[in-house]
Write a protein that binds this DNA or RNA. Sequence first.
DNA 1: TAAAATTTGCAATATTATTTCGTTTTAACC
DNA 2: GGTTAAAACGAAATAATATTGCAAATTTTA
Lengths: 153, 153
Amino acid sequence: MSFDLDRTDRRILNLLQQDSRISNQALAEKVGLSPPACLRRVRRLREEVIMAEVALINPRLVGRYINVIVEVEMVRDQLDIYDAFKRKMDTIPEVTQCYQVTGEVDFMLILMVEDMESYERFTRQYLSTDANLSKFRTLISLRRDKFSTAIPL
Amino acid sequence: MSFDLDRTDRRILNLLQQDSRISNQALAEKVGLSPPACLRRVRRLREEVIMAEVALINPRLVGRYINVIVEVEMVRDQLDIYDAFKRKMDTIPEVTQCYQVTGEVDFMLILMVEDMESYERFTRQYLSTDANLSKFRTLISLRRDKFSTAIPL
DNA sequence: TAAAATTTGCAATATTATTTCGTTTTAACC
DNA sequence: GGTTAAAACGAAATAATATTGCAAATTTTA
């Protein structure tokens, strides 16, 4: 399941998690390899552990000021009910994260919206009308103080 | 504050949010521009709205199975207490996200850890010993069903 | 310790990004 | 509506970078 990464692999991954636009030459130099040797490792890592390379944009600069955190509780702990809910969340662009959790709560959602009206629409369309949903609690955040996609290795 | 993006800018951003490794030529073709014209836009967007371009790695494949969601409540609603807490969270690699929220709860944290022992260590070192912290609630998730960094434009 | 497999670096090649510059389009103003 | 300034554009040349082939070195396995 878990791949065995040596020290060099981990250094490469750490660097690419900070800046994937680094040139292969610069990367090779930083980890002490020749460009071809480095490239081969990067290619292998891209196949094995790197899911995607993406641009992160500043939400505030494109009008997504509001982070909404929603705790969702379903009526029954039933697999097909969970799966249906996940699948639905997966299709909604405002829902950026969805975690299935253990305990009283069943799901944790994180949404990014322009205004509260957008969130209202979301609750009406997807939460208040879901017969399998028992209750939900909403937390509003205007400050995303930390957002790191990097997993330190 | 907010930059005005035309249709082409938005299409470029949407594509780069999905795959920033796309070649400038392919990108140019997709949005119907010449490579130089496209590159100029990308460069401007990188200065204005793109915060970073990063590799996303699969947490399960590097041993970070457990997502921990923590709701934190401080003893007093005081600015310097908040700021100190934020600054502390910022230094901890396991804390991948930190939101300041309104309502009963003051902060929402999302951590990624290898095992519960790591989380135990974290609580002892940073939560249980913080005199400004009144209480916290922990939710455990073994399933990150959705994790999207893209903001649809 | 020897054989097999993997990883490496060098040099040649292929892609791709980037610059230059003249042209076209858009925007602002009279 | 016509005129000018500014901004954005595309074609072609150039520069930078990634990529491949292959022999040598290293590591792993038996």
